[in-house]
Design a protein around this nucleic acid. Structure first.
Lengths: 267, 267
DNA sequence: ATATAATACATGTAATAACAAGTATTGATG
DNA sequence: CATCAATACTTGTTATTACATGTATTATAT
């Protein structure tokens, strides 16, 4: 008798457990049922349960101690992966109140360099969104986003306060971002930016340009963001895994997060 | 009869295969022996072989196709991990000839902020190394490194051309760097830096400060590096794994590499 | 000659079994 | 009371077995 209802049993089970943990059925550091109990509960062998638990362990959703059991990891520690965060989320983590001022929401003709990046023909119309980003009312960053009309038509200006572009595309239109390329550089504030950001002219700016792709390597939007470098720096932690003693110099990234400075440090 | 010679059999085997692949016994895209053959060869069951191969697969050292076999991955693709690279290596990848000029190699008394970072007492002596970094003879970066005398005494000024601090500590003294914290920010060139880097005063600089730790969370060295932002930017790629359909916004980092510009772009 | 079916072999999934090894409790012993 | 051994329970490792599923080749029929 063929079952073949899609996914293998062990991944169904790990999915089930994942959901239980997300839903809060099992709290952080709480002990999960033992492998034998789970095996009985799901009517599978212990091997299958182990495979399911191994997935969760490698995602650092649970941790296991020989002789003790399996436990839920601390709440949403960075799961050995980097979470792509948006501005609002970053600010929230930093304990600042985020707000945005939409400075422009218009269609423009794509110049050559942009057309190439977004895979549209030169001169094609693209949506351009300029936003000033504030934390606790103070200017922190200024960004410009361009996207093909194909995707741009899905956004509405008034919704940009509540939801991020990322969320809107993924949740409402099932257009997931599966890849992003970041370019990190430095610049100095020109006349316009210094005015907008209320910074000195020639003030140093941390610039992060990112190009986001959806399935099929289709570019969805390109964003240039200028951070006031006296307000924010990016911090990343690379950590070497103790188990996988691979060749010397490989470390997995644990975190890549912006750090907001509340007080002005003397450099 | 107890064997207990340390590591479990499956990790011994994966280690063995890792080495074979590194040594070039199996070339990229070459088919490994089948699971059954390996099982017979090592005198273990197929389950154990599979565990070994699973490790290699998760490290992206091999890839497997149902019905075909297991194959060696393309040469040293970024193994889903970020490789910590040093300046010389970065330049080599960019096709530039790297050189360094040691501007200072001295002991100084650690000011408060540095003492705190390096976990030494304020006023303690620390080694300070100032270096100008060149690519094809042109100034690209300037960095200052501080390290406790404990580690500093292991370095010799004349060796800094050949080997990196990282390599020296790991290979000669078995002091591995297991964690690094990067802080990325922007600054403008002051009088001294603009002279050293042959850049305009107030030229934008990409600054990367990193603190490197060895086992026991002991800080080994702290480095401040200033890149001419017209010469280099950092690029990183985040990619979502197709298999692990975890919660929406988590992407593993594939690459974090500097990109050197050979020609001056118009901003 | 081309399309199809049979076959051999690869990895993928899973059940069952046994033992090793770490942890905590319990109970006997000093 | 303190110490130590026995015990029960946990995860870790491994062997054996069976079948499912994907791939490529070979033999067969059209």
């Amino acid at each position: 008798m063929k079952l073949k209802q899609g996914a293998p049993r062990h991944s169904q089970i790990s999915q089930w457990l994942r959901k239980e943990i997300e839903d809060g059925t099992y709290m952080p550091d709480e002990k999960l049922p033992s492998e034998n109990e789970l095996a009985k509960k799901f009517g599978v062998s212990r091997v299958t349960i182990r495979r399911a638990l191994q997935s969760l362990e490698s995602e650092e959703i649970i941790y296991r101690c020989q002789g003790l059991g399996s436990f839920v990891s601390d709440t949403r520690t960075p799961h050995n992966l980097v979470r792509l965060t948006d501005f609002n989320e970053d600010m929230e983590n930093a304990g600042l109140e985020a707000s945005s001022i939409v400075k422009a929401f218009k269609t423009v003709e794509a110049p050559g360099w942009l057309a190439e990046i977004l895979h549209v023909a030169e001169g094609n119309k693209v949506l351009q969104i300029d936003r000033l980003r504030l934390g606790n009312g103070e200017p922190i960053a200024y960004d410009i986003t361009w996207m093909p009309i194909l995707y741009g038509q899905l956004l509405q200006e008034d919704k940009l306060q509540d939801k991020t572009i990322y969320q809107t595309l993924e949740e409402e239109y099932e257009i997931p971002i599966i890849r992003g390329t970041y370019r990190i550089s430095a610049d100095v504030a020109d006349n316009y930016l210094s005015t907008q950001l209320k910074a000195d002219i020639n003030a140093p700016l941390l610039t992060i340009n990112r190009l986001s792709f959806t399935i099929g390597d289709k570019p969805v939007y390109y964003q240039q963001r200028y951070y006031r470098s006296d307000k924010v720096m990016y911090e990343m932690t690379l950590e070497r895994d103790k188990n996988n003693s691979t060749s010397a110099s490989e470390l997995p990234l644990k975190e890549f997060v912006p750090v907001f400075k509340k007080t002005k440090d003397t450099g």
